[in-house]
Design a protein around this nucleic acid. Structure first.
Length: 643
RNA sequence: GGUCAUGUAGCUCAGCCUGGCAGAGCGAAGGUUUUGUAAACCUUAGGUCGCGGGUUCAAAUCCCGUCAUGACCUCCA
């Protein structure tokens, strides 16, 4: 526990915004001002417990005596420590400190600022030598001995975690009342530490380690960052805020194709595509409750006199819209869909990594408004099918690249065992289960597909939730068979997660292949250049153009390397660009009206007819969007973009 | 947000420890070469050494601050 005692002429504070879900309720929401008092800025750290109360009391009363003051404000202040206790436990201890201090003396007036809130803080510290005093309170022993005090030193870098603090971390997990299981295809639910992970279940094991043990391996910069630049897909934009990327022509095409693909799949499922504003009035009544879910992570902007914020999800845009619909039970389930470009979240700067976590991202988000839980469950399964097929067709496989996590309340499990088992059956392999005793969130069940990258870190891609709260919160209603107004159950599905993160996963998957000595590649339908045509000499460029036109007619993206370089150099460049098919056109080919194909993945060269190549490429393009190449078809006309 | 590391030509990096002329490869431009399956050859241009301050006769180099990126911590008062 770290405390900073300040003897002040006055202190005033005003709770502005809930910072966390566990924030305590406010008794009154107005500015509090106290004259001539001692403010104790307090950080509760991992492992702190009630054995420290005595020291806290002793320290405080001695200080008060010394400076002849009898009023105290305990002020929760996180910034004294980088090793904070879990909020629930911290809050509990803080209340104990407050009460014990009050009971310890008839003369001391004790007040406490609310926990869990962003507060405006005004303070005027007295000038005398004792007016500022800091202390670092630690336990003498891990068992129930009295604590001890040490003079606070300038904060040191955290040393390696001792076993003591490790087990404390686990205690904090218990406070959250999360229980962890493996749910197997046969329906057996096994506590995760009783489960024997098979060799092939290394990713699932890593997901558990990541979730529970917070296992982090030391690794250099994630490989996808290098790849996204090398392939000319995306890069950082120094002139923007961190986490806002620039996308080069190849990257923009890749994104467009993914976006169009997902949108088409959702549309086939029955989602109605809508568009909602990217910014909202911060003081609009419907927004306040939603802020509590994503505390203080939004971009705020001021325009004239209005306070606005940039959307961090598509939810409220669609909810505000649905609220104004006239909905009959006959219309349900009703599915609204938007692919946000962009959603904005001001993630902490230290959490931003390449394309994995951004502050501006494109998120497909489909909400289904359902009549009741029975309908919600049926719909939920359809959307799992949708998500599976979207992920698989993008080239990220359920079997090898993704691990499912399902999170639900104890109550929901008891009532819906078979339903949950059904989800696992669809996946066909064991999944991670997190079970809560109480419902903290607005949903009773959620699943997500996690991609395990090269550092063993999990990133959520597709997800769906059963939301039993927001229908009411947003005043969304439908009329049932009996003419009664009811609130729908809402499902929140992203069939693939943020588009940028899908690209992250594709690139990390490629990096994994390289590590294993395999040839890395992206699915051909996502390649800007699907076929590279190389003339042996300049004289053959006209023949190349004929082939190019033929490919274009067949919606295949091709280009011609007409630069003044050697043939070998051009082949090498095609290889490093990961181009699937390279055609070499010279005397032989023109004479025999054939093409020489270099197949990068099969690592073979052969001669064939252009029609056969077209048929071969068209096969994996079935059901995929078509867009023209997004760079000049002649390489001599291209600026150099990739590094 | 915190701790640590990194920041030098368009890109990848050397130089920094021990202060003393700003370097290489790739790429680009010009030229020669017209090429048959992973890098032809020659020449030239290209630098506020992230930014700001300090120490010094002298700073890419040492010190302080700041920004960006990365790793880890933190997803929290």
């Amino acid at each position: 526990m770290r405390i900073l005692q300040l003897h002040v002429d006055f202190v005033e504070y005003l709770p502005v915004k809930k910072e966390i879900d566990d924030a305590e309720p406010l008794l009154k929401n107005e500015k509090e001002r106290i004259e001539d008092t001692v403010v104790i800025l307090t950080s509760i750290e991992k492992g702190d417990d009630e054995t420290l109360i005595e020291d806290f009391i002793k320290e405080t009363s001695e200080y008060l005596k010394k400076i002849k003051c009898n009023s105290v404000l305990i002020y929760p202040y996180a910034h004294l420590s980088s090793n904070l206790e879990h909020p629930k436990s911290a809050y509990k201890l803080l209340v104990q400190l407050e009460n014990t201090l009050r009971e310890s003396s008839d003369t001391i007036v004790v007040k406490r600022a609310p926990f869990g809130w962003t507060k405006e803080l005004g303070i005027k510290v007295k000038g005398h030598p004792l007016s500022e005093n800091s202390r670092f309170l630690v336990k003498k022993n891990p068992d129930r001995q009295a604590g001890t005090m040490v003079e606070i030193a300038p904060p040191k870098p955290d040393t390696n975690e001792s076993e003591g603090s490790f087990s404390n971390a686990l205690t904090a997990e218990k406070d959250l009342k999360s229980k962890w299981y493996v749910l197997d295809v046969d329906g057996s639910l096994m506590p995760y530490n009783d489960y024997k992970f098979k060799k092939l279940e290394i990713n699932l094991e890593n997901l558990f380690k990541y979730e529970i043990l917070r296992k982090r391996t030391v690794e250099d910069q994630p490989p996808h960052v290098k790849l996204m630049r090398k392939l000319g897909i995306a890069d950082y934009e120094p002139a923007s805020d961190s986490g806002n990327m620039r996308f080069y022509p190849k990257g923009r095409l890749l994104k467009s194709l993914l976006e169009q693909f997902v949108t088409k799949k959702v549309s086939q499922y029955g989602g109605l595509e809508v568009e909602t504003p990217i910014m909202y009035d911060s003081h609009h009544s419907s927004m306040e409750s939603y802020f509590n879910r994503f505390p203080a992570r939004q971009y705020n902007i001021k325009s004239d006199q209005k306070d606005l914020f940039l959307r961090f999800a598509a939810c409220f845009g669609q909810f505000l819209m649905a609220k104004d619909f006239q909905i009959s039970y006959k219309n349900l389930p009703l599915k609204l869909y938007e692919l946000t470009r962009y959603s904005f979240r001001r993630e902490k700067s230290g959490e931003l990594v390449g394309l994995r976590r951004l502050r501006a991202f494109s998120m497909p988000d489909c909400h289904a408004f359902c009549q009741d839980m029975e309908q919600a469950k049926i719909e939920f399964l359809k959307r799992l099918d949708l998500s599976i097929s979207v992920m698989e067709e993008i080239g990220i496989s359920i079997d090898n690249d993704l691990e499912m996590a399902i999170r639900f309340t104890n109550e929901f499990y008891i009532n819906s065992k078979e339903f949950i088992q059904h989800l696992v059956t669809k996946i066909g392999k064991p999944v991670l289960v997190e079970m809560w005793d109480d419902r903290f969130f607005y949903f009773v069940l959620k699943w997500e597909f996690n991609f395990l990258d090269n550092s063993g870190k999990a990133s959520a891609l597709a997800t769906d939730q059963i939301d039993i709260e927001n229908g009411e919160r947003y005043g969304i209603t439908f009329i049932d068979e009996l003419g009664n107004k009811k609130n729908p159950i809402i499902l929140h599905n992203s069939p693939c997660g943020a588009i940028e993160r899908v690209i992250f996963a594709l690139l990390e998957k490629s990096a994994k292949m390289m590590k294993e000595g395999k040839t890395p590649y992206l699915p051909i339908w996502l390649m800007n250049t699907q076929v590279r045509i190389i003339p042996v000499r300049d004289d053959f460029i006209p023949s190349c153009v004929e082939l190019l036109e033929l490919l274009k007619i067949n919606s295949i993206r091709a280009d011609i390397d007409d630069r003044e370089d050697t043939l070998s150099k051009k082949i090498r460049d095609a290889e490093t660009e990961w181009i699937h098919y390279t055609l070499i056109i010279g005397e032989k080919e023109v004479a025999t009206n054939s093409i020489s194909v270099r197949d990068r993945l099969k690592k073979v060269n052969y001669s064939t007819k252009i029609d056969e190549l077209i048929d071969m490429i068209k096969e994996p393009m079935k059901g995929k969007p078509n867009l023209p190449i997004n760079l000049p078809e002649y390489l001599s006309k291209r600026p150099r973009i990739a590094s």
